[in-house]
């Protein structure tokens, strides 16, 4: 295929090596896209760019060198090769950045949260929070609990109610963490956790009859711890 370093009818050795690099790079990107869990903009951008780059590189490396005489000079082919390599480089950078962002951004799991025993809870009782599947690995689950009076006509419980939460994993209970009403609280997740089970204990130092309802106003999987 490579007849002379000068050009026609084949390509110069350096040009062919460049073409092979571009082709290999493009293929590597395609494989990475296939094996990496990316989604949204990152995936679309990568696929479009790599397909374009791949078609260009393949056409250039395999089809064009067989034609005699070449339709384009080596100089022009270098431009095309440069374009393909530039596109591969751009895709690598953008894909990398988007993948990093996607791997570290907060994931809203409010809709997936389920609460149990969260109505009319008396001091000393425990409510449960469940997240049946953890969609991606994150270091913390940040939850905002909201306490309201179960019977608002009867008296005031919510302002003096305290909560403590702890994660339960494979039969082991984590440390109890103080939870403030209406404020986000971060619970550190054990690596490899596929589901979350949390106990939330209700305290009221002065009134053992105070019943409250417990709700969650926000829940995010995040890599940023917050107390």
């Amino acid at each position: 295929m490579v007849n002379s370093p000068g050009g026609a009818p084949g390509r110069s050795r350096r040009l062919v090596i460049g073409m092979l690099i571009a082709l290999a790079w493009t293929l590597v990107l395609l494989v990475l896209v296939a094996i990496t869990k990316t989604s949204g903009l990152a995936q679309v951008a990568t696929i479009v760019a790599t397909v374009l780059g791949g078609v260009g590189a393949l056409w250039q490396a395999l089809y064009q060198p067989r034609r005699t005489p070449p339709t384009m000079s080596d100089r022009n082919w270098r431009w095309v090769l440069g374009g393909v390599l530039a596109m591969d480089a751009a895709v690598t950078v953008v894909w990398g950045a988007l993948s990093y962002h996607s791997a570290h951004s907060d994931i809203d799991v409010l809709a997936d949260i389920e609460l149990g025993n969260n109505r009319k809870i008396s001091p000393g009782e425990v409510a449960f929070l469940e997240l049946d599947s953890v969609p991606a690995r994150r270091r913390h689950l940040t939850v905002t609990f909201v306490v309201t009076d179960s019977r608002p006509a009867l008296g005031l419980c919510a302002p003096r109610t305290k909560l403590k939460a702890r994660l339960e994993h494979a039969g082991n209970r984590g440390d109890r963490i103080d939870v403030k009403n209406g404020r986000p609280t971060s619970i550190r997740l054990v690596p490899g956790l596929t589901k979350v089970h949390m106990e939330i204990e209700v305290f009221n130092e002065r009134d053992k009859n105070c019943e409250v309802d417990l709700n969650v106003s926000s829940a995010k999987l995040t890599n940023r711890g917050r107390r």
């Binding site: 009867l154 008296g155 005031l156 419980c157 009134d207 053992k208 009859n209 105070c210």
Partner: peptide, 9 residues
């Protein structure tokens, strides 16, 4: 006292 009902403020 305190057996039934809630604290009143």
């Amino acid at each position: 006292p305190g057996t039934f009902g809630q604290l009143q403020f």
